[in-house]
């Protein structure tokens, strides 16, 4: 069957100019939901690293230094598949309709976000991003049994200050262990 939309477009182009004036004018047509440059929302990102785990071409990398976690998208490697957008629990990453990404230097084709990390009070290592811990606390407390809520809230304040290794070592000394809730 003849596609009517194509025919209509063909007849229309007899009457008007189809060529766009792109470098000097607007682009031809940007469809809704176009997958262009991926962008981070600095305030929403919790730095969980979900996008890093799911990225098919391994374009997203995580660097940890000086108490900061830097998540970086290499636009030169990105497939623009929007898997990271699907996975992100906070909707912090979206694929915008920007497409003018050409650069002279490949190291400029990057999108980064920085999240500060929590320092362990016992050994001094950085172990988890700060917003992620506060988000987890909010989520746990909103869904927990109200009878246990007070105890858990009190424990969480101590618990979130230590890295997983120190937590195991100090659990007896500080008298917090998940087993006491069973």
């Amino acid at each position: 069957m003849v596609n009517l939309r194509v025919l209509v477009e063909a007849f229309k182009s007899l009457a008007r100019c189809v060529t766009i004036k792109y470098p000097f004018g607007p682009p031809a047509y940007t469809p809704e939901g176009m997958r262009g440059k991926p962008e981070f929302d600095m305030e929403k990102c919790v730095g969980c690293g979900g996008c890093f785990n799911c990225c098919p071409p391994e374009a997203i990398t995580i660097m940890e230094e000086d108490g900061k976690r830097r998540i970086e998208i290499n636009l030169g490697k990105c497939l623009y598949c929007a898997t990271c957008q699907e996975v992100c629990p906070e909707d912090a990453i979206t694929l915008t309709s920007k497409f003018e990404l050409a650069v002279y230097d490949l190291s400029q084709a990057k999108e980064t976000v920085e999240v500060s990390q929590v320092k362990c009070e016992n050994c001094g290592c950085y172990f988890a991003p700060e917003p992620q811990i506060s988000k987890v606390r909010d989520r746990v407390l909103s869904k927990i049994n109200p009878v246990q809520k007070e105890t858990i809230e009190k424990d969480f304040q101590v618990y979130s200050k230590y890295c997983p290794t120190c937590r195991k070592q100090l659990s007896f000394k500080l008298n917090y262990h998940p087993r006491k809730y069973y």
Binding site: P23, A28, L75, G76, F99, L101, A102, V103, Y104, A109
Partner: peptide, 19 residues
């Protein structure tokens, strides 16, 4: 000049050539 995209739009390629 590097033009990222998978694939880049024709406009993106024209922009790259303009650079």
């Amino acid at each position: 000049v590097y033009v990222p995209g998978c694939p880049p739009k024709p406009e993106a390629i024209i922009h790259g050539i303009a650079l």
